[in-house]
């Protein structure tokens, strides 16, 4: 029996798909091996997992061993203790703040907010910068002039001041802050970098080969240009997280947002009622949120730097004259 030619074609394309996937997986594995060689990157990854763990454990604890009337981050209050704030104890592992809330519970709840802000703004920024920069670099001409004109304007807008201005207009919540921040970052400096990268890729030989093989502009942009922009997008995403979380914390520190439970507002509460010696000192209510902001941002920054080292061929470890 002769094999069905149609069937054979489909099987060969299947095997091609499998092989391609295998190649992609090998590349991923290779990148992961390279990433593992950077101790700072691994520290960052570990910290991110630690904060993820905090985020996951909080609802579990609230539903099992923590009584909501005492440990709820918004309305919890421990009536057994005479004075708030208190120092760390067995019942409250990080103490309570001046308003009687448990700090560990607040900290875990705040991790949720930081992750949401960071991830939303990173996705917004990367989508915008990749599309704008990619289109401007790839198509050139009038689109390039208009899009780069826009990013020339957006690079001049300082994010904090724009957010403060908008804060008088609308009630800022975590998602509006992160989307506005993402737009400012994505349309500003990031799209200019992406455009430069696209221009460099456009002159590569494999793009010409794809053109000779009859690929349309659309096909070339989505199948050959965009995958090449992914490494840059990862680095930009991670760096946007740092900026977004710091900006959001500053805004909630100045109480310009409508979210009452973030790390920034915890610092604000602690610092408004701060006493140096009276009532046993209050560093226990200030240090945990501040350290969390720092460690969270450092974690993403370290991961970003390490991935930059992997993806940027000029930074790859070589034998260096020393």
């Amino acid at each position: 029996m002769t094999p069905n030619p149609k069937n054979e074609v489909s099987s060969s394309s299947w095997s091609l798909f499998l092989n391609l996937n295998k190649a992609r997986l090998t590349q991923l594995n290779k990148n992961w091996m390279r990433f593992r060689a950077h101790p700072t990157g691994m520290i960052g990854l570990g910290l991110i997992f630690f904060f993820l763990l905090m985020l996951v454990i909080h609802p579990v604890l609230m539903n099992t061993i923590w009584r909501p009337s005492i440990y709820d981050p918004y309305i919890g209050f421990d009536q057994v203790l005479k004075m708030h704030p208190t120092l760390p104890s067995l019942k409250h592992p990080l103490g309570t703040d001046g308003m009687g809330h448990d700090i560990l519970s607040q900290l875990m709840y705040g991790a949720r907010m930081s992750f949401s802000v960071g991830i939303t703004s990173a996705i917004t920024a990367v989508l915008i910068s990749t599309l704008v920069g990619g289109v401007a670099g790839f198509s050139g001409g009038i689109a390039d002039v208009i899009l780069m004109g826009i990013s020339d304007v957006f690079i001049l807008l300082p994010a904090l001041i724009v957010l403060l201005l908008l804060g008088t207009l609308v009630r800022l919540s975590w998602w509006s802050i992160s989307i506005i921040f993402g737009i400012l970052m994505g349309l500003g400096s990031q799209s200019i970098v992406v455009k430069a990268q696209t221009l460099a890729m456009k002159s590569k030989v494999y793009i010409e080969a794809a053109r000779i093989a009859g690929g349309s502009d659309f096909h070339i942009f989505f199948n050959h240009i965009l995958p090449g922009l992914i490494p840059l997008a990862i680095v930009h995403a991670v760096m946007t997280v740092v900026g977004a979380v710091l900006t959001e914390s500053l805004l909630s520190f100045f109480s310009r947002t409508h979210d009452y439970m973030t790390w920034g507002s915890m610092i604000w509460v602690g610092h408004r009622t701060f006493r140096w010696f009276n009532y046993g000192g209050q560093w226990s209510s200030l240090i945990p949120p501040a350290m969390s902001i720092m460690l969270f941002c450092s974690a993403f920054y370290l991961v970003g730097r390490s991935s930059d080292k992997i993806f940027n061929p000029r930074l790859r470890e070589k034998e260096i004259v020393n």
Binding site: L250, G264, I267, L286, A290, M294, L302
Partner: peptide, 24 residues
């Protein structure tokens, strides 16, 4: 290693808190 970690920590530290600590 230590200078890199220190630099990252100083870059990402929360400005009001750092000022507050130094002031106090």
């Amino acid at each position: 290693f230590s200078l890199t970690l220190g630099g990252v920590a100083s870059y990402t530290s929360f400005a009001p808190f750092l000022g507050f600590v130094i002031l106090n």
